[in-house]
């Protein structure tokens, strides 16, 4: 079980080299640095804070977008090249295939986050950069698992990416949406309001609270936020298990 799993993980990670993912990442870093250097020229005050805030936010969103797109295109390519179907004829290998893919993409996330966190350390304290990098890695694990699920479920890039974008945006905004639903001006006693509030609360139970992850304030105003990282690690573990469960459930129901 372990040997084929490691082989799939290795080949998945190697896919990043063949598709020049690294060059894309380097371009992102270069573009980010150019942007913050420009902003440093025009800022009158809080130059370092502006630089680190924009650098952290742009790195985060770009990496989420790149990793999500990379995973989905990889899975749909496997799907189109009929890699998944023969694998489905071997019942025992389905779990191994999924875990191998997840492991390979997780490795890619780790390798992508490390240089960005190191670069960010030039603008903030090392502790804050490590915390930010660790949190981004956890966030990317959830994005990876969600991308795998949507890639397997849809088998096409457009619907899978649309689902991922929807999932990510709603997960980032769910706390704000809940606040609006429970706001002091919500029409108390109104049936439609009660239904909407329950619906929003129900969705919130099923989504990770991604706006708690990789917060820019950690690198702009460094402080001890390590206990928060433990909470995020717990949420990541649970959510990746949930996404893995759904993806495996879907994979095992496919006909060879």
């Amino acid at each position: 079980m372990l040997r084929p799993l490691a082989t799939i993980a290795r080949s998945t990670a190697a896919e990043a080299i063949h598709t020049r993912f690294g060059w894309l990442l380097a371009a992102v870093v270069l573009l980010g640095f150019s942007l913050v250097q420009f902003l440093a020229q025009v800022a009158i005050t809080e130059t370092r804070e502006i630089q680190v805030a924009l650098l952290a936010a742009s790195f985060r969103f770009t990496l989420v977008f790149l990793v999500g797109l990379f995973v989905i295109t990889g899975i749909t390519r496997d799907h189109n090249d009929k890699v998944v179907d023969p694998m489905c004829s071997l019942p025992l290998s389905r779990g191994g295939y999924y875990l191998g893919k997840l492991l390979g993409y997780s490795l890619l996330c780790l390798v992508s986050v490390l240089p960005l966190a190191l670069l960010l350390a030039l603008f903030t304290t090392p502790d804050a950069a490590v915390l930010w990098g660790a949190s981004l890695f956890l966030e990317l694990l959830i994005v990876c698992a969600a991308s795998l699920l949507f890639g397997f479920a849809f088998g096409q890039v457009t619907p899978a990416v649309s689902a991922l974008v929807g999932f990510y945006l709603i997960s980032r905004a769910i706390a704000s949406i809940q606040l609006m639903a429970h706001g002091p001006l919500a029409e108390a006693g109104s049936f439609s309001q009660a239904v909407m509030t329950r619906l929003v609360d129900g969705i919130a139970y099923l989504l990770p609270d991604l706006d708690q992850f990789t917060r820019t304030e950690w690198v702009v105003y460094p402080a001890a936020h390590w206990p928060e990282l433990l909470v995020l690690a717990g949420q990541t573990l649970i959510y990746v298990l949930l996404l893995a469960g759904i993806a495996l459930f879907d994979l095992y129901r496919r006909d060879p």
């Binding site: 649970i238 298990l241 469960g245 759904i246 495996l248 459930f249």
Partner: peptide
């Protein structure tokens, strides 16, 4: 797999 899915859902 079913137990993993249900367990993770309850945990979440």
């Amino acid at each position: 797999v079913v137990w993993l899915l249900l367990g993770a859902l309850v945990l979440q």
